[in-house]
């Protein structure tokens, strides 16, 4: 078997006018000015995504911010089985279970906190959930905040979406 040899174009020597740079600089200035004028006149060349207003569409399997699901009657689907907390490698889920007033539900989460500062977005909680109560399909990152307390998402925050 022979090895194929490919000719690679080496950078050629600069011609004299090129080595003076001046002409090339003016050409370069033309390019940048062209871009600028184009972008001022027509905006479609602009790549910027105006982030909070316009959000990138995440691929469907993107693991984003968690949300807790509700039953048809509006109560949280979570039964506080602790499977997610058990599966969580970052130990970021804190659940306090309680006796639900609805005997058909029996157990419900009095507290369901996810410490977003600890979460590693691995999705194991979603895998572990036997009730499909927790999902990470919001397509949304954890929004930044200015205190640690605000980044511990409580059950109300997680049920919002």
């Amino acid at each position: 078997m022979t090895i194929g040899i490919r000719k690679v174009a080496r950078p050629r020597e600069m011609t004299f006018p090129e080595s003076l740079y001046l002409v090339e600089i003016v050409k370069g200035l033309g390019v940048t000015m062209g871009h600028m004028l184009r972008n001022i006149v027509r905006q479609e060349g602009i790549m910027t995504m105006e982030y909070p207003e316009v959000r990138r569409r995440m691929p469907p399997r993107f693991r984003g911010r968690h949300r807790l699901m509700r039953r048809p009657d509006g109560s949280p689907r979570c039964v506080a089985c602790y499977c997610c907390a058990t599966a969580c490698p970052a130990k970021c889920i804190t659940i306090v279970a309680g006796e639900s007033p609805d005997p058909a539900v029996e157990k419900y989460p009095v507290r369901f906190d996810i410490d977003m500062l600890r979460c590693v977005f691995c999705g194991l909680c979603v895998e572990a959930c036997p009730c499909d109560a927790i999902r990470m399909d919001t397509g949304w990152f954890t929004p930044p905040d200015d205190s640690r307390e605000k980044l511990i998402f409580t059950i109300d925050v997680l049920l919002e979406k």
């Binding site: 039964v79 506080a80 089985c81 499977c83 029996e106 157990k107 036997p130 009730c131």
Partner: peptide, 9 residues
Amino acid sequence: IDCPICDQA
């Protein structure tokens, strides 16, 4: 099979 809410689980 209500293991998620069963204390025996």
